[in-house]
Amino acid sequence: MKVFIINGSPRKEGSSSFVANSLLEKYPEANLINLNDLTFKGCQSCFSCRKNNTFCVVNDDLKDILPELVDADLLIVISPNYYGFISGQLKLFLDRWYCLKDANRVSKFKNGAKMFFVMTQGAQNRDHASLATNWLKKIAEGFNLKYYAYVIPGCGSENVDMAKMKIDDLKMHLNMFV
């Protein structure tokens, strides 16, 4: 199984990074992508990918990553909750997915591919993540990806205790989804 773990957090020691590293233990063959370690731009709206039925032509750190994603069986996408939404790093990354549909707007992802989204947040109320989880569900479904979201509330910016408490439950949900 080809797995990508995409960490949208800038904090190397934060809850999202803890989750990413814990899931790497579960999927040691996975490709871990820490978006904050990459240099890339958002979509430049040049339409070259759609006109020429190619992948993104922007020459940055995503040039080799984006074509690899379409062969994934499972994408595990992780982000902290920033003002009720995903991190800026993850938003720019997802904007670049424009090239992951062909000229006829058909997804390039393989059939049966899945996206498991994890949001860590300080707020205790899981509904605080609903804007992000619902938005990302629409994105995933637009690419024909099966989608599941898991929210970990109570994650302080300097403390991974709640993520540690919830990691086994998260893995159980992931097992049921996959």
Results as ranks from 00 to 15, higher is better:
residue 2 K to N: 08
residue 2 K to L: 11
residue 2 K to S: 13
residue 3 V to D: 03
residue 4 F to D: 06
residue 4 F to Y: 11
residue 5 I to H: 15
residue 8 G to Q: 03
residue 10 P to R: 10
residue 11 R to F: 04
residue 12 K to S: 14
residue 14 G to C: 04
residue 15 S to K: 10
residue 21 N to W: 05
residue 21 N to H: 14
residue 23 L to A: 07
residue 26 K to W: 00
residue 26 K to S: 09
residue 27 Y to F: 15
residue 29 E to D: 09
residue 29 E to G: 04
residue 30 A to D: 00
residue 33 I to A: 09
residue 35 L to K: 08
residue 36 N to T: 02
residue 36 N to F: 08
residue 37 D to F: 00
residue 37 D to P: 14
residue 39 T to V: 10
residue 39 T to F: 15
residue 39 T to P: 13
residue 40 F to L: 03
residue 41 K to F: 04
residue 42 G to R: 13
residue 42 G to M: 09
residue 45 S to K: 07
residue 45 S to W: 07
residue 46 C to M: 03
residue 46 C to Y: 04
residue 49 C to V: 01
residue 50 R to Y: 02
residue 52 N to P: 10
residue 52 N to Y: 07
residue 52 N to L: 11
residue 53 N to G: 09
residue 55 F to S: 06
residue 58 V to H: 09
residue 60 D to L: 05
residue 61 D to C: 04
residue 62 L to W: 04
residue 65 I to E: 10
residue 66 L to W: 09
residue 67 P to W: 13
residue 69 L to N: 07
residue 72 A to P: 15
residue 75 L to V: 03
residue 76 I to C: 05
residue 76 I to D: 05
residue 77 V to I: 01
residue 78 I to K: 15
residue 78 I to S: 01
residue 80 P to E: 10
residue 84 G to W: 07
residue 87 S to K: 02
residue 87 S to C: 06
residue 88 G to F: 05
residue 88 G to C: 00
residue 91 K to W: 00
residue 94 L to M: 13
residue 95 D to Y: 07
residue 95 D to E: 11
residue 96 R to T: 01
residue 96 R to K: 13
residue 98 Y to E: 10
residue 98 Y to L: 13
residue 99 C to E: 14
residue 100 L to W: 03
residue 100 L to A: 04
residue 100 L to Q: 10
residue 100 L to E: 02
residue 102 D to H: 12
residue 103 A to G: 08
residue 104 N to H: 15
residue 105 R to H: 07
residue 106 V to N: 14
residue 106 V to L: 11
residue 108 K to M: 04
residue 111 N to W: 00
residue 111 N to M: 00
residue 113 A to K: 13
residue 114 K to M: 04
residue 115 M to Y: 03
residue 116 F to R: 13
residue 117 F to K: 09
residue 118 V to P: 10
residue 119 M to W: 00
residue 119 M to K: 11
residue 122 G to Q: 14
residue 125 N to Q: 12
residue 126 R to K: 15
residue 128 H to R: 12
residue 128 H to L: 00
residue 129 A to L: 09
residue 130 S to L: 06
residue 130 S to K: 11
residue 131 L to E: 10
residue 132 A to Y: 08
residue 132 A to H: 07
residue 133 T to I: 08
residue 134 N to V: 06
residue 134 N to E: 11
residue 136 L to S: 04
residue 138 K to H: 11
residue 140 A to D: 00
residue 143 F to S: 08
residue 144 N to E: 12
residue 144 N to Y: 15
residue 145 L to R: 07
residue 145 L to A: 03
residue 146 K to M: 06
residue 147 Y to V: 00
residue 148 Y to F: 15
residue 148 Y to H: 12
residue 150 Y to D: 01
residue 150 Y to N: 07
residue 151 V to D: 12
residue 151 V to K: 13
residue 152 I to C: 09
residue 152 I to M: 08
residue 154 G to Y: 06
residue 156 G to F: 11
residue 157 S to C: 09
residue 158 E to D: 12
residue 158 E to V: 02
residue 159 N to L: 05
residue 161 D to G: 15
residue 161 D to F: 15
residue 161 D to P: 08
residue 163 A to V: 11
residue 165 M to D: 06
residue 165 M to G: 01
residue 166 K to Q: 14
residue 166 K to L: 05
residue 166 K to A: 05
residue 166 K to D: 01
residue 168 D to T: 05
residue 169 D to H: 13
residue 169 D to N: 10
residue 170 L to H: 15
residue 175 N to D: 11
residue 177 F to T: 12
residue 178 V to S: 08
